[in-house]
Amino acid sequence: MKMIEFFAQHWRELVPPAGVAILVTLITIPIFLAIGAWSATSQLYGGRLAKRVVNSYLAVFRGTPLLIQVFWIFYGLPLIGIRLHPIVAGILALSLNFGAYASEIVRSGLNSVAHGQHEAATMLGMTRRQSLRRVIFPQALVVSAPALANQVIELFKNTSLLGLITVAELIRGGRQLGVVTFDPMASWILVAAFYVVIAGLAAFGMRRFERRLNRALVSTGATP
């Protein structure tokens, strides 16, 4: 009962931090997807140098913790003369990290597109670039959509790490609420509830979108 009173009284104070977390997520989504798409295509179709660069990028960002990457970019880069605003540093770290994982997802999506599609596009007189963009990529995206949607949920959860580099998101908001109200437990449970509601709604929305996407494809006769 006391807990519910606490929630009713203080939930408004966590709305701005939640907004920051959502905003960071929304800005990061197109960046990490672009990085993922770009590195997946250069890994599959790029030259030798591009492949090598992308492979080392993937190895480094998948082989080390996100927390280390965030701190490395925020505290480390100023020492070699690159000073970034905490939000910018955070978005950069999240984009590079999630881009590396998205790359694997997009790559397996690209691999799942039947080889005949490539040949058919060539037969129709498309250049390699055109066939990739108009035929292969759209199909690969549909295949990768569920996994990428999961990535977006994970991304939203991981904006919590930016609280450690002074970005005023939910972790910061929760800590402050705990200090002001002397009730850290209720504050952290409220923060957890915010994550559950927002991430839960996002997951629900994306599942519906996926279902519609699949239905649309079936009705046009294309198979994902």
């Binding site: 949920i153 919590s160 972790i171 994550y195 559950v196 997951a203």
Partner: peptide, 11 residues
């Protein structure tokens, strides 16, 4: 699956 580890750690 919806709550970040960081929140759970602090909790």
């Amino acid at each position: 699956r919806l709550v970040p580890e960081l929140v759970l750690l602090f909790l």
